[in-house]
Design a protein around this nucleic acid. Sequence first.
DNA 1: TTAAGTGCAAAGGCTTTGCAGCATA
DNA 2: TATGCTGCAAAGCCTTTGCACTTAA
Lengths: 142, 142
Amino acid sequence: MRNIRKSAPGEIAGYPVTAQRRLLLDLIREAGGHIDAKEIYRRASSRDESISLATVYRGLRLFKELGLVDEIRLGEVRGYYEIKRSVEHQHLVCKRCGKVIEFESPLIGEMVAKAQRAYSFNVTKAELYLEGYCQECKKKDS
Amino acid sequence: MRNIRKSAPGEIAGYPVTAQRRLLLDLIREAGGHIDAKEIYRRASSRDESISLATVYRGLRLFKELGLVDEIRLGEVRGYYEIKRSVEHQHLVCKRCGKVIEFESPLIGEMVAKAQRAYSFNVTKAELYLEGYCQECKKKDS
DNA sequence: TTAAGTGCAAAGGCTTTGCAGCATA
DNA sequence: TATGCTGCAAAGCCTTTGCACTTAA
């Protein structure tokens, strides 16, 4: 983990705000939900032909370190990114059609509290991943 | 997903029980907790010099499909395997020392039930991943 | 001006696959 | 005996890195 600079102007605290970084953040914001590096690169390329995949990955790593985006995993595959939101949310994924539902649950907080007490941990991150079949896919399969 | 054969003798239902597969399953059992492909390969090689990494991966894929092992993710890294147990359990990982605590929580069941109702999903898998700092590492860092 | 970012291409990990030979059932 | 597993090596993905050039501050 590199040192993260404190205090700074611009949205990418302490780091140079380049056109590429601005573009990448915009794209992740516009994506609304989760998006992966390849898709970010594809969309970025249509606005800036010369942007490289390496820059996408370097940007994503920086944004993660700064807490601007979260890297999440859906199913077996990690490498999806989304803008960090104030409220933590969890993912429910359909194994057949790939639909992703985001939801919040107060029970998560309870579980974190329990685990902290039981194991004397200081919990900094909690992810719940649920997988199954959505209503339509249940029907289609039967 | 390949077709899984029904009804069969031996522990690897319907599939030939080869020496390699038996060895791999033994190793995963002996590991007790989570173990990754590389480490399985390393340990397997010491008992069977000629076993190949491809066989390890093919075995793991088969065991997963048959429900004999679970593939889990710890932190950013997926690719850990463990013998499937009857009771679902969750993981709590220390970001500093890497210690992994497994725990069970009845709240998971509640959350699954809630999600099923709220989104008409048929939930088949639930994973909770908690990350933070254990007691010792909290002390050391301060 | 100068530390830091960028593009390009090459390299790294991990995982999968094609193929010929071998083994289980 | 016949299906299917194995070892080997090559190929595939995704991600990172080295280097020379460019740019934000």
